[in-house]
Design a protein around this nucleic acid. Structure first.
Lengths: 347, 347
DNA sequence: GTTAGCAGTCGATCCGTACGAGTGCTAAAC
DNA sequence: GTTTAGCACTCGTACGGATCGACTGCTAAC
């Protein structure tokens, strides 16, 4: 909508300087600071004029008359969009990432849990990760296990995701029946979850008696697994970082934020809304998304893949006033390494 | 150590009144307030004397000269210990609990997840739950699944707990080998995890070739599952309640607290330390435990059982200044209902 | 178009005062 | 001996006013 080009190079430079200074100091920045710190050869008065113009255009705002300027969400957006691509990580960060991925980890969920912590440590904000949805994978095994009072349906995805759901146990169930069911369910291997469900239903149609009953229940369970992303828990790490970093946030704001992080469905929607299908990385700033708008938060997210198949999303949630350069570099680097690992792990 | 009896009935009554008033109002309570509110027929001067004595004994403390009294951890302890047993829930709470358990839920972990939310809603603090450790259960099924690049060991416990761990896949693995392994592992049914591990090792000893290799890896995985309570994730719900309720906590305190809640191992230790083996319910107040001492928190916990076998623990974490009567009533009631459900579910 | 200078604005800070809640003590009353 | 009334004292908190200082926005000169 607003091409940064039309700002002109000097306005752009000033906006950039304001954002960076504000992110650094946390305090509204005045024209003097910019005139001194930045090496445009102009005086503070000129900067003032430009800043007034930037405010007019909606990129900056004014807490009160005698204060400096603060970037608006639009200002951050422009800043982020015009960022040069060559993002460098600090050595310590690079080492932290390498160290993490040097550990041998075989279970993807475990890796993701660690990834949220890693991201949180790298950025000082909260790290999030959405594990692969079983829906997108093919099924490697469907198993029905007799627990006595109930039956347990176990579905294993190709990348090692395990989904379980209990179903009712028919009173007249025998071991043979269960074996029969097991044999039939073996044919689900290699299907996607919806396909598996359809096949299970079809199998049920061809089968009489108790076995049929169980198969129908299994099909229902397979349906539930798709419909409700129950197993798709969003992994979160480092909420405590937010509590300290965000020292200037209002208490209520923080409450809302932690609440939102707890609501898995909300985070899930946020991260899914946020990660455009083809994009490499997405940044959502404050009011650009209703959820984050409420609590002055931004989300930097990137997908990770196995080969060319998108598996899930990782990201960082922090205040709108965050160090986008560093965060984006971290998320990108971690996503890249994670994709490599996932590819190697679950080819 | 300190029998409340030796306080004398009046001191005890005053202590009780101070605790209740302080919990209610959140502000240091003065002698006048007690004299008026409570119906001991004595004047504020007498109360003052008694309060000075209680302070001397360590049950109360003084933020500063011209302020009222505040209970110490010891004061809360005495208050809790002398609580009458007849704890009543408010109707709304009773209904919330019944409503929750009226939903049909078949998966214990799902129930526990909901339980943390329920406890949090009932008490306005954070709810926690420790699911059954697989170690204590008997194994219903051990399965090795070929995921291509790795193998996945799946262990199902009698109550439906599922533990998974990836192991290396020998290069020369064939489907037959895997079937052989599977047949041997069938004999693990009904054993406890340590027994199963021993049996797996023994099986490995009796078996040659690749099969042996896999069995050894499985035994290792079974060992890992006992050693590291990796699957024993502590479930937590309602952290946001703490963020708002604890409006008077220092920011750093809150950061520490959320951090501690995030460290599963710490919470696990806390909850395990806290739940005495035979006790019905335990209350840990502030400095009584090193972890909670750091952040002025208390933990009210109760075990839940299936039949007479202890499965896990549920509890509530909140500020030392909490409404112990209500929280204890809630935790006790939920633990009772949960035990009934678990008994019915996993006889 | 840029810059220096200057008046004006408005929040933040500091300080002195007054207030009031609550204690602790003492002396009288029961 | 215990309880109570009275009172001086302490000490945090709220209030108000003056000052400070950081910026801006404007104007006039370059």
């Amino acid at each position: 909508m607003t091409e940064p080009a039309e700002l002109g190079p000097r306005k752009a430079a000033i906006l950039r300087a304001v954002v960076e200074e504000y992110v650094r100091s946390g305090e509204p920045v005045g024209s003097e600071t910019i005139a001194e710190g930045s090496n445009l050869g102009v005086s503070s008065a000129t900067i003032r004029n430009e800043m007034a113009a930037l405010e007019e255009l909606g990129y900056l705002s004014h807490p009160h008359t005698s204060a400096g300027r603060v970037p608006t969400d639009l200002g951050y957006r422009c800043y982020v969009d015009t960022l040069p691509q060559g993002l460098r990580l600090r050595d310590a960060q690079r080492r932290a990432i390498s160290g993490f991925f040097a550990e041998t980890m075989l279970d993807l969920e475990e890796v993701l849990r660690g990834t949220t912590q890693l991201l949180s440590r790298l950025t000082q904000y909260a790290g999030v990760a959405v594990p692969p949805r079983l829906t997108d994978e093919t099924v490697v095994r469907v198993e029905v296990i007799d627990l006595g009072p109930t039956l347990l349906v176990l579905v294993v995805g190709q990348h090692g995701a395990v989904e379980k759901q209990a179903i009712d146990r028919p009173a007249d169930l025998t071991g043979e029946t269960l074996e029969g069911v097991g044999r039939r369910l073996d044919t689900l291997r290699g299907l996607t979850l919806p396909e598996a469900q359809a096949r299970a239903l079809r199998l049920a149609g061809e089968t009489p008696g108790t076995e049929r009953e169980v198969l129908i229940a299994v099909a229902e369970a397979l349906g539930d697994m798709q419909a409700m992303p129950r197993g798709t828990h969003v992994l979160i790490g480092g909420v405590s970082n937010l509590a300290s970093e965000a020292a200037h946030w209002r208490r209520e704001t923080m409450r809302h934020m932690i609440e939102a992080l707890e609501r898995e469905s909300e985070m899930l929607m946020l991260l899914q809304d946020v990660s455009g299908p083809q994009e490499d990385m997405s940044v959502t700033i404050g009011t650009e998304h209703p959820s984050t708008g409420e609590w002055d938060a931004s989300v930097v997210a990137a997908p990770f893949r196995s080969g060319d198949q998108a598996l899930g999303t990782i990201g960082v949630v922090g205040p709108t006033r965050m160090d986008y350069v560093s965060v984006m570099a971290s998320v990108r680097a971690v996503a890249k390494r994670l994709s490599e690992l996932a590819t190697e792990l679950g080819a």
